[in-house]
Design a protein around this nucleic acid. Sequence first.
DNA 1: GATGAATGAGTATTCATTCAT
DNA 2: GATGAATGAATACTCATTCAT
Lengths: 206, 206, 206, 206
Amino acid sequence: MTSTRPLRADASRNRQSLLAAAADEFAERGLNASVADIARRAGVGKGTVFRHFPTKDDLLAAIVLDRIDALNAVGERLLDAADPGAALSEFLTVAAEQRQQRDLSFLQEAGELNAEVTRVRAQLFQTVHRLVDRAREHGAVRADITGADVILLMCAPNYVTSYVPDASPDLWQRYLAIIFDGLRPEGAHPLPHPPPMSLDATHTPD
Amino acid sequence: MTSTRPLRADASRNRQSLLAAAADEFAERGLNASVADIARRAGVGKGTVFRHFPTKDDLLAAIVLDRIDALNAVGERLLDAADPGAALSEFLTVAAEQRQQRDLSFLQEAGELNAEVTRVRAQLFQTVHRLVDRAREHGAVRADITGADVILLMCAPNYVTSYVPDASPDLWQRYLAIIFDGLRPEGAHPLPHPPPMSLDATHTPD
Amino acid sequence: MTSTRPLRADASRNRQSLLAAAADEFAERGLNASVADIARRAGVGKGTVFRHFPTKDDLLAAIVLDRIDALNAVGERLLDAADPGAALSEFLTVAAEQRQQRDLSFLQEAGELNAEVTRVRAQLFQTVHRLVDRAREHGAVRADITGADVILLMCAPNYVTSYVPDASPDLWQRYLAIIFDGLRPEGAHPLPHPPPMSLDATHTPD
Amino acid sequence: MTSTRPLRADASRNRQSLLAAAADEFAERGLNASVADIARRAGVGKGTVFRHFPTKDDLLAAIVLDRIDALNAVGERLLDAADPGAALSEFLTVAAEQRQQRDLSFLQEAGELNAEVTRVRAQLFQTVHRLVDRAREHGAVRADITGADVILLMCAPNYVTSYVPDASPDLWQRYLAIIFDGLRPEGAHPLPHPPPMSLDATHTPD
DNA sequence: GATGAATGAGTATTCATTCAT
DNA sequence: GATGAATGAATACTCATTCAT
């Protein structure tokens, strides 16, 4: 949060290349993707990676940050939608599409990440909570469902399809639909366990 | 399948310690858990690990094998149950309980593992297919659900709760219930995507 | 053959230290010399070895390459000498001096080494063949001697003296002289076995 | 030299299997041949190897011992031969045949070996010295040749042919003949270096 | 005596990170 | 600012040797 003066043009270009390259490399190789490969893919020297991101983990955090921010923007926009049920459904669809593009599921391993991520994630959580509250009030989802539930279930469709070797890239739609059916009021059975109190945003559902 | 003569008493004890220690260590540290740490945890020398499991991957395979076998046994028993819907539900419950005990989700990263694993996994798949077929015929699950769907969704409850820092150990029950509601015929909406053809069992949903 | 831009000054210095240290270490400990020891002896970190030579074998190959190249250069120069007999003798002397400086006889154990080595070795073989042909035509060596014979016998003087614990460093001269006498036409007895067809240069007489 | 009571029948059989297996394995794999492989090849347990030979080096020593003893026996018998020149030639032939059967040239690496070996080797050296002295007195070898010279040159033919990939098993005969021609009085040129004083038999020309 | 299970020092190699150019 | 050379901790795996069975 040090008062970042704007980067020189080339530096900013490098930063972008790096984020893209890193996201690709991580998506392909998981957390073990090597900094050297990322640098090569970005067309810069290894040293440059560390000038921009003091640590491999910081690089990871930056990627996650971008992603969460983008998703949060979508969520906030949908808060004003006319049909709250459709809005929630749309939000989950966008979230899954985003995850599908680049599988960052391995992030689960990556422990706490940095504080900035936690902050942005907390924002996203707020947004989801509001989306869910509106949907619930509208009767679009069952009464016993919370924002936390949706946050947790949000990644399941992609997770689930990641096991299918040569899956259609849209297979997640099937499982999102099934899960969403489970969230609806119609035919709902009482739930055997209360929802988690709050997700402290230090962990990583995205 | 080499006609393994029964292990010496101490050797067999070591093998058990190793499997337990390795499962714990893998669960805590993921695939990068080091053989040295596993050995230390099991209270044996590093060399002993390799005597029992020529390769880190073989160790992993042994753990997975045990797990799948156990689960398959449960599934086969449930094939004879009176209520096919309850049987399927029971099966998913046992699967989740097993996964809850030790999280092996990192296995997703692991490549093919060995052939034995693939074989046993294929058996398990068969069992699940039969459980699902029976449940469907009984009207306990919707008509458009296949065995493959259930295999894929089976792990979702644990995956989802793994994001909650200090979750109640039974939280998965909540998400299994939601997902199972999504599988029921009541209130089902048509699914936007066909199910995957077949899971080739070289990959790792367990 | 990748268009290697010239190494940075320090890197090139390190490369030289490494080659020297490795040659010494190999000479003292044989093929089992450890990369760690080589690094220590060169005064660099272990990682630096692998930056310069991706593999222990590549390091070995580099050493061998240098040696063969140097010897070949001498041989080619001697092809123009006035007295072909003296030229051959001189060549064998230089070869033995080179080997005496650093004993690489352990190389016999080493497998194929890399293709570059094979290529350069084939060149050296050509050179020797020509030296021997000229000497034979001049009557300086017996008629039934081939280039292959000389290539094989070339290393014998050093091999032989390597058994003498505190030998004079010039002792090889004695055995080179004896062997060379065996190659002369005077007093030659017919040979009981034909010469080898061709040495395929994937093996390692140097 | 502890007053070895005669071995039990099976033990003695094991000892022989071991020596044979070890010689083969060493010949095929060099000094790095593993004790486990030797044991397997001999059809005994690994522990048995160490009961008979407290150390891998001791096993090696035992093999060498057998070999030297056998060769020495031949040498001593030839001391009484009618033609001292032929006797020396015959001796060198037998030595080369023996070495050809099983290549133990890697032994050079094997440092000092044990005292027993040194003792037996000293005997062999004596024998060779006497064979050479007789041959010299008879004019069968040049006057400036010593027993030490012959001991050293003795192994050269096998060494030299070990570089030829698919050599005829008798190729050594060619090089023994060349070297022997170099030892003859006819056409001998004066030698540029005095012979080594004495070979202290702690090193290993066989 | 024989066996093979256990041990741990040793090895090549990788990779995040630092720093001289 | 950018580069890539240097570093060394970490890792899977091997093998001579010891020792309980």
